[in-house]
Design a protein around this nucleic acid. Structure first.
Lengths: 337, 337
DNA sequence: CTTAGCACTCAACATGCCCAAGTGCTAACA
DNA sequence: TGTTAGCACTTGGGCATGTTGAGTGCTAAG
């Protein structure tokens, strides 16, 4: 029993199954792939693969389908990342050039990726853990209501309306803004909580209350800026995969809507800072995704933020991985400016 | 043939069908509803209803199901808006109190509405057509890159990075900001395009180029502020309705993802400024929604922005309408501050 | 206008049968 | 020791056939 051929058989099974969506049998296998042996030999190999838990038969006289473990081995040891076609490269190029706005770029990227892979695409906003505070703004909306705006050097802007408690004038706000700015301008957002208290303490006694309210507002803004957000596209692709319903679509939609779930999932995978990481079926920490796989990688500075796709375990991993990797690279390059 | 009874029969058919998801026949009808007549009589009535196109039979010997037209008549003339339960009222109350941030409130609202109705909930951001410009900010991110921030008096903040073309200093920006502010502060966003040109013309010759770039940036921001955006929740509910697949879920997900489609849909319906409007099946302008219904109403000042739900045509209209109306009212009240 | 009765239709279900695809095993072979 | 041919066995899917029950439309009487 040759080890290489066993892997070759597994590879053939995965490829055929992904392509045909039907359990694949020994005979069909020797016909479609020119392995130099007979179906009987393949059967022996298959029996071994099944023993090792890499493939399984839905019922006695049906072909085999890969298990999660089988896909895992396939991804780790067998498959080569399939290069993108020239047309696909061009598509990436033309679709992602020519915009400055981060939000806009991310939106295009995620749409592109979902079209490229025919799966759901997900992208995490660039990390702003290390972001520094660039600017703040207090705008009086009504006698007691102040719009607090925080701008990070990542270009991210967050705003929030706070109730000042007492009436406050434009002059007061300008004064307070100056104080706050000199105290926290340029500071990492992560340090904001510690830095704000002393600033408030230094404000004129008559404005202490207002200052405290504003500080709390800023703190919350910094928090939600640090908070990760995500964007997605291509949910309709789920319906298509669903036609042959191995994948029940409901739980997946729930997971996607619970951004917290997806964000944790993305953060937890992709430890490998350079490569593309894959999480297959029950490997996923979330139950609703037990029949789904996620292919993701990092992008941007330090590959800290993640981008990826989600689809049924029976997906074309080589192509998906290639697409994710290529798109992530372009994205990094464009955001690099 | 009594007209009132005919309507009563239609009502019974709609209610039973919504409840059971199965075509309803004459016999079952007389059993479940105590209409004072026999099944034969009902059959005659049904034949008439079918002639009028209000109900239809999927095949010869099956019961009847309501047509789009039947649902239309049902919501227009038959159904009464079902009052919410006390528990539901309490849920609305507790979930929507205690937040200042518009974004946050909308998110909670839309989640609440989707849970209340078990459908997909959609909310349009408050209209800012009449919004005025409250504030602008230019922030230097890099020698040539300027973050342009626009704040409307609605509290909406939009930002965008523009490339100045030439190097520009902080002082230049402060100067330009002053010029722009004095020229357009307080102006309705809709007027911005006309107002910007003269301001640029009045800037120092050396800064004309930069001023023009910034003006274009502001213009785009104003445009996207005028642009309507939306938020949604509960897409997973689609999967549940889909179990009995009258409604193929793919096209619906596509429509939901194409926010433009949904926004146009929402704007086009609900002419009636006070009531709840319903758009049923093929009445929808978008093909993918030919088996879906939308229940929506306006909220906020002038009921200009819309909130609503989307589900299969076979939905519980009275309850849905009640929920949408109640939630919209609370939302208006809270945003009224 | 209503109702009982009746003949008719048809999807859904069940039953039985056959076939093709696929398996595992054994014995022969290189 | 690994490969192969052959064979008996399993089983889901397709097909023809029959049965049932819900539901209809129509007619004639109340």
């Amino acid at each position: 029993m040759s080890e290489p051929r066993k892997l070759e058989v597994l590879r053939a099974i995965v490829e055929d199954y992904v392509h045909s969506r039907e359990p694949v049998g020994s005979k069909a296998l020797v016909e479609r792939h020119h392995l130099g042996v007979s179906s009987a030999t393949i059967r022996n190999d298959m029996a071994l693969l099944e023993e090792e838990g890499l493939i399984a038969a839905p019922h006695t006289s049906a072909g085999r389908i890969p298990t999660d473990k089988g896909y895992r081995l396939f991804v780790d040891r067998i498959s080569a990342v399939k290069p993108l076609s020239a047309a696909e490269r061009r598509a990436i190029h033309s679709l992602l050039e020519g915009s400055d706005d981060v939000e806009d770029i991310l939106e295009r990227t995620v749409r592109l990726l979902s079209q490229l892979t025919n799966q759901v695409a997900v992208v995490q906003y660039p990390h702003s853990n290390r972001a520094k505070l660039r600017h703040i703004e207090f705008v009086l909306l009504a006698p007691r209501q102040v719009l607090v705006v925080l701008i990070a050097d990542s270009g991210k802007v967050e705003q929030r309306v706070v109730d000042a408690g007492t009436d406050v004038s434009d002059e007061d706000l300008t004064l307070l803004r100056g104080r706050f700015l000199s105290g926290i301008s340029g500071a990492p957002l992560a340090h904001l909580p510690q830095l704000l208290a002393p600033v408030v303490a230094l404000c004129p006694p008559s404005l202490q209350g207002t200052a405290a309210v504003l500080a709390r507002g800023l703190d919350k803004l910094a928090e939600s800026t640090r908070d990760e957000r995500m964007m997605m596209a291509g949910t309709a692709n789920l319906a298509r995969s669903n036609v042959d319903f191995a994948l029940s679509i409901g739980p997946v939609l729930e997971a996607l809507e619970e951004q917290v779930v997806m964000l944790r999932l993305l953060s937890e995978m992709a430890e490998d800072p350079r490569g593309v990481t894959v999480s297959i079926g029950r490997e996923n920490p979330y139950d609703g995704l037990s029949e789904a796989s996620v292919v993701a990688t990092g992008y941007g500075p330090g590959a800290a933020a993640k981008i990826g796709i989600l689809g049924p375990t029976r997906m074309d991993y080589p192509s998906s991985m290639a697409a994710v990797r290529a798109v992530a690279r372009y994205l990094s390059r464009i955001l690099g400016n």
